[in-house]
Design a protein around this nucleic acid. Structure first.
Length: 140
DNA sequence: GCCAACGTTGGC
DNA sequence: GCCAACGTTGGC
């Protein structure tokens, strides 16, 4: 089972919004090929950290992949073909303590995280070691 | 196919 | 509000 990190600005879609809706949330509007490719690689049940960008700048919870990649309902076709795809997600749980970007930057074990190295990538892979380290920092 | 111009992301 | 990083677009 692979792990991921997915970013959202909380004033657009927060972790609590996903909980409140109670139905799989379409991770739409991603318009970056690398992020799209990561979503196409996701398997049902894969878990992802939910990171609040811009406001908060912290990992607040865990979500899971509820639907494999499918055409993004908000995207136009290009020459009649699907270009942009995305998955749907469901909430799993909030972290006991959020793990901030500053915390991650200060942790020598997490210097290679895509969150830091590829700061603009909104959907990125997380290694098993990184996953465990973030959970540890969250007090889990 | 190169690269300058431009737009976007997202931290600070 | 600024700006660095980086992806995309379009002229040549």
């Amino acid at each position: 089972m692979a792990h991921w990190l997915m970013k959202s600005e909380p004033n657009v879609l927060s972790y609590d919004d996903v909980v409140t809706k109670g139905v799989p949330e379409e991770w739409h509007s991603v318009r970056n090929y690398a992020a799209r490719n990561n979503m196409k690689a996701m398997q049902l049940g894969d878990e992802a950290f939910f990171y609040h960008s811009v406001e908060g700048k912290e990992i607040v919870g865990i979500i899971r992949v509820a639907t494999l990649a499918h055409p993004d309902s908000t995207a136009e076709l290009k020459d009649g073909k699907v270009v942009w795809e995305c998955v749907d997600v469901l909430p799993v749980r909030k972290l006991k303590r959020p793990v901030t970007l500053a915390d991650i930057k200060a942790n020598p074990n997490l210097q290679d995280m895509a969150l830091i190295k590829l700061s603009r990538l909104s959907v990125s892979p997380v290694t098993d070691a990184e996953w465990a380290e973030v959970l540890r920092m969250a007090g889990e």
